[in-house]
């Protein structure tokens, strides 16, 4: 109690001057309430009820501290913890939702694959039927020829045609039966390795995969010294992993885009970002990525992804993006 009294006196003192401000909840408590409401409206409400309950209890503690001793350090601290707890519930809810989405997508993929295989089988069946029809037509013509004593030129011509047709159908059936399946299997395998290779990069970099492009973002601070465009030794391991993944991509174009923060002259930043992109390109080319499929561009400070007003934001803006797109 002894230790609380100075705090109480401060509040009473402040209260006589600014009666309202004392009863206002702290910014932390306001944030915590908002975070909790957001979490309640997120997928957490459906998937993470335990987490949500923990968030609610944390918020209640903060509210109690506010009621008992508004503006206290205890209120602010408990509100800070409550806000994080609510954010965590929200994130975990989103994770569970994404996991379910992924399972659904996987099922869709499997179904589609099965459907495609069935279609291939149907096409094979049709070809077989066509072959059967041609074969019986051929037999009929041969029978007629036998009756005509082998002297009918028209029938001879028809026989030749049917024989050629039969040969073609047999050939195409053989092609369909073997190559098509083999091709499909090879494609599925290649696709799997390529996708896995790109995905595995998220140990080193931020990877964002879209329907037709994948963006790998490498933080500038791990690649280069401030103001320099020569690669740091620590960057090489990351870039080697990137090169390994890129080598497996077929029919893709790769763009290396350098970005800087907003400090320094615009032109300097443009040059620096281009030089850095070129350094990365050179490294990747020297590690086996085909030079024809990869280009370097400098974007300077024009495309920030975060606030340039804070050190954290600036660090995120200094980056190199590797954009892998479909097509030639």
């Amino acid at each position: 109690m002894k230790a609380v009294s100075p705090l109480v006196w401060t509040i009473v003192g402040a209260g006589t001057v600014l009666a309202c401000s004392v009863t206002q909840p702290s910014a932390e408590l306001v944030d915590a309430r908002q975070a909790y409401l957001r979490a309640m409206e997120s997928p957490a409400a459906q998937h993470e009820q335990d987490e949500l309950l923990a968030a609610k209890q944390a918020l209640q503690k903060a509210e109690e501290a506010y009621e008992g001793d508004p503006g206290s350090r205890s209120e602010k601290h408990l509100a800070y913890l409550a806000e994080r707890r609510a954010q965590m519930a929200e994130q975990r809810g989103l994770t569970t939702a994404a996991e379910q989405d992924q399972m659904k997508t996987k099922a869709e993929y499997d179904a589609l694959e099965k459907q495609m295989r069935k279609q291939t089988e149907q096409r094979l069946e049709k070809s077989r039927e066509a072959l059967g029809r041609t074969t019986s037509a051929l037999a009929a013509v041969q029978a007629q020829l036998g009756q005509a004593g082998g002297k009918n030129a028209e029938l001879e011509e028809k026989k030749r045609q049917l024989l050629a047709e039969k040969e073609n159908l047999e050939k195409s059936l053989a092609v369909k039966g073997t190559e098509l399946e083999a091709e499909r299997e090879a494609r599925i395998k290649a696709e799997k390795t390529a996708a896995a290779a790109l995905a595995s990069l998220d140990k080193f970099a931020q990877v964002k995969a879209d329907d037709d492009e994948t963006i790998i973002t490498l933080n500038g601070s791990v690649l280069f010294e401030t103001g320099k465009s020569k690669l740091l030794p620590a960057a090489e391991e990351r870039l080697r992993a990137v090169a390994r993944a890129l080598k497996q991509q077929k029919n893709r174009t790769i763009q290396i885009a350098g970005h800087t923060d907003s400090r320094g002259a615009t032109q300097m930043n443009e040059k620096l970002s281009l030089d850095r992109a070129k350094s990365v390109r050179e490294f990747l080319v020297s590690h086996g990525v085909k030079p024809g499929m990869i280009e370097a561009v400098g974007r300077g400070e024009a495309q920030p992804v975060a606030e340039n007003g804070t050190a954290e934001g600036r660090a995120n803006n200094r980056r190199v993006e590797i954009i892998v797109r479909k097509g030639t």
């Binding site: 913890l81 994080r84 996987k106 993929y109 996708a195 790109l198 329907d211």
Partner: peptide, 27 residues
């Protein structure tokens, strides 16, 4: 608690990326 939140976010991002990859394969 901030570090714990960072873990939750990182996990969510990973799962979302996996789902996006699967969708691109479907496409």
């Amino acid at each position: 608690i901030d570090a714990e939140l960072a873990v939750s976010i990182a996990r969510k991002v990973r799962v979302e990326q996996d789902a996006a990859l699967m969708r691109s394969k479907i496409a």
